[in-house]
């Protein structure tokens, strides 16, 4: 029975937590700047570069960071995903140590769409001669103008992912009675070893 007891464990390291909240803040801010910001998008570009730096950090942290930040703990066997899905509707906390198999998929998807977003932004040419991505002239005007459309598509995907992310957090909070926000603030989470 002792094995079934949940323990409070320091699961998210400080760097990862700082990364998470900075990323959340900057992505939301840059999304809003993209849609509703000034016509001269200087600030959008600078926040975009900061997001590039954050993503670079995350990729490095996924290789050299602590266990729960490692990519190795992001990739689960498909069977553990379906297994997790089966139990997910149970009205009890998951007490999962780190990224659960489904949440890990969401993390991978969000990182990929953000990499897509900064990549297309850097090469986008909206043909207005002011808000041209710094690398647009490296890829040729055909790709650069297409990248502008891909960037707008990426923005829609990001909106969907962010809403799904928040919905999942609410689902855990309300349905499963598990607070996932506090662990991302303090680092401490109630977990059960598996």
């Amino acid at each position: 029975m002792a094995e079934d007891q949940a323990r409070r464990v320091r699961i998210w390291d400080p760097a990862l937590r700082a990364f998470h909240w900075l990323l959340a803040l900057l992505v939301v801010a840059n999304w809003l700047l993209g849609k509703f910001g000034p016509n001269i998008m200087t600030l959008h570009f600078w926040l975009g570069y900061s997001i590039v730096a954050l993503l670079a950090f995350r990729l490095i942290w996924g290789i050299i960071g602590p266990e729960s930040a490692r990519f190795s703990s992001l990739f689960h066997h498909p069977r553990s995903v379906t297994g997790y899905l089966r139990d997910m509707v149970k009205r009890e906390p998951s007490h999962w140590p780190g990224h659960n198999p489904l949440g890990a998929l969401a993390v991978i998807a969000m990182l990929l769409v953000l990499i897509w977003q900064v990549g297309t932004g850097l090469i986008a040419d909206p043909e207005d001669f002011v808000n041209v991505g710094p690398l647009a002239n490296k890829v040729g005007s055909d790709i650069a103008t297409k990248a502008d459309a891909w960037h707008a598509l990426g923005a829609d995907l990001i909106l969907i992912f962010v809403l799904m992310h928040i919905a999942a957090i609410l689902f855990y909070r309300i349905w499963k009675n598990e607070d996932l926000i506090r662990p991302m603030l303090t680092g401490w989470k109630w977990v059960r070893r598996r």
Partner: peptide
């Protein structure tokens, strides 16, 4: 001058030109 002009290109393209 470029910034002033370019802003007006963007504003119109945002609403009335399909990106592709």
């Amino acid at each position: 001058v470029v910034q002033k002009l370019g802003g007006t290109c963007k504003v119109c393209h945002d609403d009335y030109r399909k990106k592709d």
